[in-house]
């Protein structure tokens, strides 16, 4: 699990995500601002990658932060890091927005490969969490194209195996196999590299 919870912000504020969320839960506006600044590029980037439209992505990203703010009091760091929690909220909202527009997903490769190819991971984040991120991206690059697309369509666009089969014009069983094998390869790659 990538844990960005202790990632220092570019503004220099060193408060942990948990502390910021605790402040947001009691209405501390400054804590909210720091939290937004810390994650706005990641949240907006994910939203934009999924919905493909800047205006809709901004709506989605703002809504994601508001949801996080509204639920800050019940955030449980034992279950997931704040970044994981926030990105999952963002992904779900973006999928809602995508379906609202009845838009077809863009090429999944656009989402999953543009990050590392542009090298846009902040240095401080790369130092703390980018290692796993880079390893995951590297593993993804090694996964066969069909499996990679199937995993990306499910992970980023919430597409079911049936929808993937229709989009890719492949049998349902093939879609399911691609999802399973692709995700398993990623898991195995990360797990093996994490083993001392």
């Amino acid at each position: 699990m990538v844990d960005l919870a202790r990632t220092p912000s570019s503004s220099g504020d060193e408060a942990s995500d948990e502390a910021l969320l605790a402040g947001m839960a009691v209405g501390d506006e400054r804590a909210g601002v720091v939290f937004v600044r810390r994650y706005q590029r990641r949240v907006y980037g994910l939203a934009l990658g999924i919905v493909g439209d800047p205006g809709t992505a901004e709506d989605v990203a703002q809504e994601a932060f508001l949801r996080a703010w509204a639920h800050a009091s019940v955030f449980d760091p034992r279950r997931a890091g704040a970044s994981t929690w926030l990105l999952t909220i963002t992904r779900n909202l973006a999928i809602d927005a995508l379906r609202l527009r009845r838009a077809e997903p863009t090429d999944p490769a656009d989402v999953v490969f543009s990050a590392q190819s542009r090298g846009d991971c902040p240095p401080e984040e790369a130092a703390l969490s980018g290692d796993l991120r880079a390893r995951l991206a590297g593993a993804l690059a090694q996964v066969p194209e069909g499996q990679r697309r199937a995993v990306a369509l499910a992970a980023f666009y919430g597409r079911s195996a049936k929808e993937i089969a229709d989009l890719e014009r492949i049998p349902l069983g093939t879609a399911k196999s691609r999802i399973r094998m692709g995700l398993a390869k990623l898991r195995d790659a990360v797990r093996v590299e994490e083993t001392p």
């Binding site: 590029r41 994981t84 990105l87 999952t88 990050a115 995951l136 992970a155």
Partner: peptide, 11 residues
Amino acid sequence: DDLLTLAPLAS
């Protein structure tokens, strides 16, 4: 969950 962190950053 980790896959979501691979999305490109954008301002």
